[in-house]
Design a protein around this nucleic acid. Sequence first.
DNA 1: AATGAATGAGGATTCATTCAT
DNA 2: TATGAATGAATCCTCATTCAT
Lengths: 172, 172, 172, 172
Amino acid sequence: MFKERGFEETSIRDIASKVGILPGSIYYHFESKDELFVAVYRAGIDVLSREVRATVSEHRDPWERFKAACATQLRIVLGEDDCASTVMSVPPQECGALYDQLTVMRDEYEEIFKTLIQDLPLRKSLDQKYLRLAILGALNHAVIWYRPGLDDPETIANRIVEQFIDGEKAPD
Amino acid sequence: MFKERGFEETSIRDIASKVGILPGSIYYHFESKDELFVAVYRAGIDVLSREVRATVSEHRDPWERFKAACATQLRIVLGEDDCASTVMSVPPQECGALYDQLTVMRDEYEEIFKTLIQDLPLRKSLDQKYLRLAILGALNHAVIWYRPGLDDPETIANRIVEQFIDGEKAPD
Amino acid sequence: MFKERGFEETSIRDIASKVGILPGSIYYHFESKDELFVAVYRAGIDVLSREVRATVSEHRDPWERFKAACATQLRIVLGEDDCASTVMSVPPQECGALYDQLTVMRDEYEEIFKTLIQDLPLRKSLDQKYLRLAILGALNHAVIWYRPGLDDPETIANRIVEQFIDGEKAPD
Amino acid sequence: MFKERGFEETSIRDIASKVGILPGSIYYHFESKDELFVAVYRAGIDVLSREVRATVSEHRDPWERFKAACATQLRIVLGEDDCASTVMSVPPQECGALYDQLTVMRDEYEEIFKTLIQDLPLRKSLDQKYLRLAILGALNHAVIWYRPGLDDPETIANRIVEQFIDGEKAPD
DNA sequence: AATGAATGAGGATTCATTCAT
DNA sequence: TATGAATGAATCCTCATTCAT
């Protein structure tokens, strides 16, 4: 529900009634709406971290490794895990006091990609930061326009990344 | 305020007190919070359309034209116009009943880029739709990570677009 | 509008926009919503008083006179005059502080019927007050159920009154 | 409170403070002011239906039965049950969107009287509909003028109905 | 582990009214 | 005569939260 309607537009009432309990009962499990949301976010971050790291460990070639990591992220975000989708759909600015906490988690996760890009044999002139931000931006944007029935997430990720890659590969 | 905190987190009270009037007084000017937000969004879309179109008309070369359009968008969104920033910062999903209305406006605007990309001499194998979505995603993402003091918006836009361009130019 | 929606449900805004001016402009003509409503009520009472008195003066026979008065009231209330309809449709209790003022006007008007009934040759056992209240109640009720296209107001009034009359005529 | 001040003039605040809770707390029990009012109206209709039907079942003679039903209605409306008084005091037109719902309930209830009047041995020339509407109008009007200390409600009802009855009984 | 009933603060909105222009 | 812009209080209602049971 957070991913579809955002933090503010999702009420404790909504959540409770979807689970089939009363709003008050939620407070047995979570101390506050904020805590609940953080738990969801955390879960999303964890799934992403785990899966992307697993993917990374399966590839040797830096470019293949990077492409596979992107594909894994998109696969999870677009379909497999609602918590992960939440991470990419809900802008931290709209979560009030939670902003810092969420941003820390996200930065932690994106650290993986920082490393992955460092390992890439890139033209010297290229700014790695911009490459990372551009690719992650391009990938995340899919959360908004993606509709099932189109290409599957992994294909989409590959297409997107290849647009960058081909130009950026360092000359032999 | 909408761009910084989102639609739901920005209250009529907040807006009124920033303007120095009482909450009720807002309703002399706008029929509802929704209508007010749509007016902001509309204004943002209009500025973007006007400026980007102006930029487009100043360039002949398709690649230069496209790069310039991207740079203009980013310049406006990142600094010049708060309404335009709102357009790129506030996800329509978080605006409840406004979703459709906002999406129509945005699609209308992105149409410009569709045309711009059609005019590009691209490798046949490339999917224009993915290129468009990827670039717009990469650019918009800057709304989140950009902080003044870094490279200026036009430089950033050029860097981002060049990452794509170099690879995609059709072979002579 | 008062007659259709009641006092509270009719706003100065509604009235102004129907007249084609702005809400504030109403206050050039009336000091308050209360005053405006009282003016409408007053106008209704005046029309009724004038017309019913005119009718009364045209008849000699007490029963005919009474019947004609009832018919006139119903004709005016049901069709001719919106102010008069308002008098019969809007319960003074729902007009807050206006209650007393309105009640005085209405009592003044009903005084006519008190006199008319006093002149009737009735069975001694009959309580004149109940006859008056019952007939006026029966007549006014028509404001609620009457729809144009049925019998015309005067016929209805005659039918209603005759139901009483036939039984109440004093034995010769 | 609804019966004394009407629907619009009675606020959720008023109701809550009379009950000794806060306005918001009302929404645990009712979804809206409308729903609350409908519940009151429903309760009034139910009491009336039940009691009048009980009365009806205790009488054989059609005229006695009818008179007793009227007396029961007036007794309940004038004194015993505030919900029933509300039904007769608050005009549905002043309840905005509730109009249809309330009218359906009321028509349902008045059906009882339709049947009762059908069973009456009346002069052929008489229009049953007008008799029903006139009597119900005359009775309900008492909600407005009745003050405790006068004749008791049942006496009043009998007096009112007898004014009609004597004239309408079919000749043997 | 959940409920039922409430709280209190804040939400958007409506309203009669004011008043300088 | 009317407007444009505001006021301030009240409107219904929603929300996260609490807590005894």
